[in-house]
Nucleic acid binder design. Structure first.
Length: 881
RNA sequence: GGGCGCUUAGCUCAGUUGGUAGAGCGUCAGCCUUACAAGCUGAAUGUCGCAAGUUCGAUCCUUGCAGCGCCCACCA
């Protein structure tokens, strides 16, 4: 048993216990214990290429606090850590960091090594896909080390033997197995159809990756001619550049203004295409002129309407977001005046959509641009407007709908079941379920599962190449499960040779990678070794707890629930808890792009890890928290106080050459002691109930409250008694209460303040039976056990003592006297019951007030109704030294 | 446009079967007290966002409104 140093130096102490915990494997998962005794956490794998900031510390601490509590209840904790390293954020970071680009056409160079020199702005280098992936691996490995160091410092009690990375071989295997399972079940399919497409990244994206942004645009009112008639219709659009892709004109079926036109045709200006005029439910008579053009494709409604209309598609926007070369007069670009149409289009071809918009506005504004050559096709000046436009959340230009071949996973047919399963999960806070519900109800597309990127999990699929050189998408070649993971761009399917790659009668690998959520959605299955180790899977799945941010309910929570449903028809975890965000002091969300990010390193150094954890744990689940230095200072103060109070308590035992542990078995005889232990019992019950409901914040609050009462009032009341030179029942009662209290407080604080509590524990209660010696493996305090000490205790007596002490101190303070100053007269007035209680605790009160027994008078007032009034008169004389 | 959440002391936040409004920080006034000056004691501070309703009684329940934040939605 070591003794505590005089001062608490957090950096030394953290260093000591951090390595001891790791060496002793205090947080190791024990695979031999059954599921019922295990608490299983689906840890969020942090995106390692993202910036490290206090938000990470915040939410991961919440999980750790819960894990530590569960561990102390005797549970076997399964608490892994993964790194989310695949996907676009990493690619982007690697491109900038090493100044490279992936070009799949370039050959692999085994001698190439990525270099980073921030001083030298070298030319952007094109490298092969394999080299690019190597560079991704190199950089993410560095990032992971930084995260690992932070997590250790923060004392996350993860089992580092359970570390994984979403791009590692095991994750690729599970990801690909998942895909093959979905394919077998008919839940995955591929289709060539208009897909939401980011023109910068040149990849398909999913509904979950969309965000709306307010963008300045302008309404252009354009005159169309009704075919075989002199009538004109005026159509408003913010995307005039899509005029050449116009396939129809529609108005609401009940719109009286256009009834007579349904069934007729309209002719577009500039391109002179005949397009049908039809009725469509989605046309809103209130908006614009009530009649609109359908183009392939302006928005999702265009896509929907096009699908059911069976009209031909006129694709003009290409993968790069530029207008393609098309020729008018040939299908589907039918035109009444092909030459004139082509002449107009020549001005637009090759331009980006936004440039084309400006250009076509000029063309439309030209004299004689109307179909009948009578004036301009553009009516008036374009009217500026601001409208929400869909963007890929990481992109810089609006998404376009581009027809491409993609893999999809079915979610739309399963909406009902998803909602049902969502309800089976306990959401903390509960109202977060509503967000999930709304997301599921609002789904309007299947999950687009493929991405045209490089650093990700490839599809485990090859296709036969037919004799005509075309790819046979309908008969994919699949690897057996045992071969996973595979990379179809380098691996060869059974029965083929590498030389047949891309050749007639040979094969071709699927070039795409999976959506990053395809892997992230499997974090429970990745850790349970689904399909690989059925025994282990049964032992770990479904899991107990998913912690995550509320901003990714529609992605991570949703896809994980969807996968558990599609694969095994079950929920993935029993509980999901959602942490809030960290806001900067101006209440803006902390994010890299806003430049208001605070990194955690200096906070840990300045205030200690325990203090930073304290700050995190004060915030309730789901609640956003403003970053506030002061709270760290409060945390540091609490740590110091806990340390000093512990030193005081332990010194009482050292003085008598005994130990706190030996005193636990003593007898509690004094009323003040019993009263305090009763309070302690209440606090333990409340903290336990809080933790059981995942409400760690209330556990901390209640513990902290009573701890300050302990220091300020209990210790001050019994100090003199515990200092007694002679052995006595009164003295031993105080010592036993101090021992029980210290032990309980250390344990109650242990989930929040793992370092300081371990330090004190090591000097006091380390031999607790059944523990490895770490407080974090000790048994959580048992409220019932504490209650046995305090059987007849009356907690009100403690409050009365507090009140009297407060009055005494108050009088001394306002008289500008020291707290040692003698009290000449102490008069207490109350009803019989109150005074009866006070009589049992006067000894401690008089000692702590420096008041003689003669100076005390008790006056009974039967009308006092439980109220106690206190009169204090101080001595004139200065206290003698 | 729809939904969810929030609004309590100067600041950050607690506050459930509806019953006299709480903590910490900050401010002010003091105090070396046999653990702690990185400490301790005390004091002051409120239209509980606004309005109506239910009730003997509303910070709490109901309705409406306002402000803030977030999520979602169909770009004419």
């Amino acid at each position: 048993m070591n003794t505590l140093p005089k001062k608490y130096k957090h950096s030394e102490i953290e260093e000591k216990w951090k390595s001891w915990w790791e060496a002793e494997r205090v947080y190791g998962w024990d695979p031999s214990r059954p599921k019922e005794e295990t608490f299983i956490i689906d840890t969020p794998p942090p995106t390692v290429s993202g910036s490290l900031h206090v938000g990470h510390v915040f939410s991961y601490t919440h999980t750790d606090v819960i894990a530590r509590y569960q561990r102390m209840t005797g549970k076997n904790i399964f608490y892994p850590m993964g790194w989310d390293d695949n996907g676009l954020p990493t690619e982007r970071r690697v491109q900038n960091y090493y100044r490279i680009r992936c070009n799949p056409e370039v050959a692999y160079n085994p001698d190439w090594k990525p270099t980073h020199d921030p001083k030298q702005k070298k030319e952007i280098e094109e490298v092969s896909r394999k080299n690019f992936i190597e560079a991704c691996n190199t950089l993410t490995h560095e990032d992971e080390k930084a995260f690992h160091a932070l997590w250790s410092q923060l004392a996350l009690s993860v089992d580092w033997a359970l570390e994984y990375a979403t791009i590692d071989e095991h994750c690729r295997r599970v990801s690909q197995a998942s895909f093959l399972d979905l394919l077998e079940k008919g839940e995955a399919f591929h289709a060539k159809s208009p897909t939401m497409w980011d023109t910068d990244f040149q990849s398909a994206i999913a509904q979950a990756e969309l965000e709306d942004r307010e963008v300045a645009g302008a309404y252009h009112n354009i005159r169309f001619q009704v075919a075989d008639s002199s009538e004109e219709i005026e159509i408003a659009t913010t995307r005039p550049e899509l005029l050449p892709a116009c396939i129809a004109v529609v108005a609401h079926p009940s719109d009286e203004r256009y009834q007579h036109l349904f069934g007729k045709e309209a002719i577009t200006p500039l391109f002179h295409s005949r397009v049908p005029i039809r009725a469509a439910e989605h046309a809103d008579p209130e908006k614009g002129t009530g009649i609109l053009m359908v183009c392939t494709f302006g928005d999702i409604m265009d896509v929907e309407w096009w699908k059911q209309s069976k009209l031909p598609m006129k694709q003009i926007i290409g993968r790069e977001g530029k207008l393609l070369d098309v020729s008018f007069g040939t299908e589907p670009f039918q035109s009444e005046k092909p030459e004139s149409a082509q002449e107009s289009y020549r001005e637009l071809a090759g331009l980006y959509a936004k440039q084309a918009r400006t250009k076509i506005a000029e063309l439309l504004a030209a004299p004689n641009s109307a179909v009948n050559s009578d004036g301009t096709a553009l009516v008036g000046e374009p009217t500026p407007t601001k409208a929400p436009v869909k963007f890929f959340e990481k992109g810089d230009r609006p998404v376009e709908f581009v027809p491409t071949r993609q893999w999809y996973v079915r979610v739309l047919p399963h909406k009902e079941r998803l909602l049902q399963l969502g309800k089976e999960i306990e959401w903390h806070p509960e109202y977060m379920y509503t967000r999930f519900q709304h997301w599921v109800e609002g789904l309007n597309q299947e999950w687009c599962y493929s991405r045209q990127r490089y650093f990700g999990v490839p599809f485990p699929v090859w296709y036969p190449v037919q004799e005509d050189g075309e790819t046979d998408y309908e008969n994919p070649i699949l690897p057996p499960f045992e071969d996973l993971p595979i990379d179809p761009s380098t691996d060869v399917p059974a029965g083929f040779r590498e030389e047949q790659r891309g050749q007639k009668g040979g094969f071709r690998g699927d070039p795409d990678v999976m959506d990053t959520w395809s892997t992230s959605s499997l974090t429970p299955q990745i850790m349970s070794h689904w399909k690989i180790d059925p025994e282990r899977h049964k032992q770990l799945f479904p899991m107990d707890l998913r912690p995550q941010g509320h901003d990714i309910i529609r992605t991570w929570a949703f896809t994980t629930i969807a996968k558990a449903m599609l694969h095994e028809g079950t929920i993935p975890w029993k509980h999901i808890c959602l942490s809030g965000w960290i806001l900067d002091p101006d209440r803006k969300k902390m994010s890299k792009s806003k430049g208001n990010v605070v990194t955690p390193g200096h906070l840990l150094e300045e205030y200690s890890s325990d203090a930073v954890r304290y700050w995190s744990a004060r915030a309730r689940l789901g609640t956003d928290t403003a970053f506030d230095d002061k709270v760290f200072a409060i945390g540091r103060k609490l740590v110091t106080k806990l340390f000093n109070a512990s030193r005081f308590v332990l010194s009482q035992f050292e003085r008598l050459e005994t130990t706190a542990e030996a005193s636990l078995g003593g007898t509690v005889t004094e009323e003040v002691d019993k009263a305090f232990l009763h309070k302690l019992h209440n606090t333990i019950s409340a903290a336990t109930a809080g933790f059981e409901a995942l409400d760690y914040a209330v556990a901390l609050q209640r513990t902290e409250e009573l701890f300050w009462d302990f220091c300020d009032h209990y210790v001050e009341l019994v100090k003199t008694r515990s200092y007694g030179e002679e052995q006595s029942a009164e003295r031993d009662s105080a010592l036993t209460t101090l021992a029980i209290s210290l032990k309980s407080f250390l344990q109650l604080f242990a989930p929040f303040l793992p370092y300081v509590t371990e330090e004190v524990w090591s000097a006091s209660f380390r031999t607790d039976p059944g523990s490895t010696g770490s407080i974090h493996k000790s048994r959580w305090p048992d409220a019932k056990e504490v209650a046995t000490y305090a059987k007849s205790g009356n907690p009100r007596l403690f409050d009365l003592a507090k009140q009297i002490m407060g009055e005494v101190r108050g009088t001394k303070s306002t008289s500008q006297r020291s707290l040692k100053w003698p009290v000449q007269e102490l008069q207490l007035t109350g009803d019989g019951e109150t005074l009866g209680g006070i009589r049992r605790i006067t000894g401690d009160i008089l000692r702590a007030s420096n008041c003689t027994e003669e100076a005390l008078s008790l006056k009974e007032n039967s009308d006092a109704d439980g109220q106690l009034s206190v009169r204090v008169v101080l001595a004139e004389e200065e206290p003698t030294a």
